[in-house]
């Protein structure tokens, strides 16, 4: 069980870290990428800004993953606790 917990913890932690990396990375991206793109091909001012859409998309994916891992871990924890409780009960009744 501790193995699962540790694994889940690792996974969620890393997801969080990488989620943070997305936020840290995205706003910086345009300057960083400037040399790859001729300036006249940049989206004109009247167009929709792309960054909020992009950030939302990546945030949704990471939040979705994180939420799902958390939900499965929580459900697994509940079931696991109940199994342990029951097994203890069974042992006690057998002894008595």
């Amino acid at each position: 069980m501790t193995l699962i917990k540790r694994a889940v913890a690792c996974l969620t932690l890393l997801l969080l870290v990488s989620g943070g990396a997305v936020f840290a990375q995205q706003p910086a991206a345009p300057e960083q990428q400037g040399e790859f793109l001729p300036i006249d091909q940049l989206p004109p001012q009247d167009q929709l800004p792309a960054a909020p859409l992009l950030i939302t998309a990546y945030a949704v994916v990471f939040v979705g993953f994180f939420g799902y891992v958390l939900s499965v871990a929580r459900r697994l924890g509940t079931v696991q606790r109940e199994i342990e409780r029951l097994e203890a009960d069974i042992k006690r009744t057998r002894k008595a």
Binding site: L11, L14, S18, Q25, Q32, Q33, L37, L42, P43, L53
Partner: peptide, 27 residues
């Protein structure tokens, strides 16, 4: 699980370093 977390941690860097698509740009 650790590998998976690392891959996701690296993915934003790779994506940020990928070139812009000429017509759509950042999005």
């Amino acid at each position: 699980a650790i590998l998976c977390g690392l891959m996701f941690a690296v993915s934003p860097l790779l994506i940020a370093n990928a070139p812009y698509e000429s017509t759509m740009g950042l999005v």
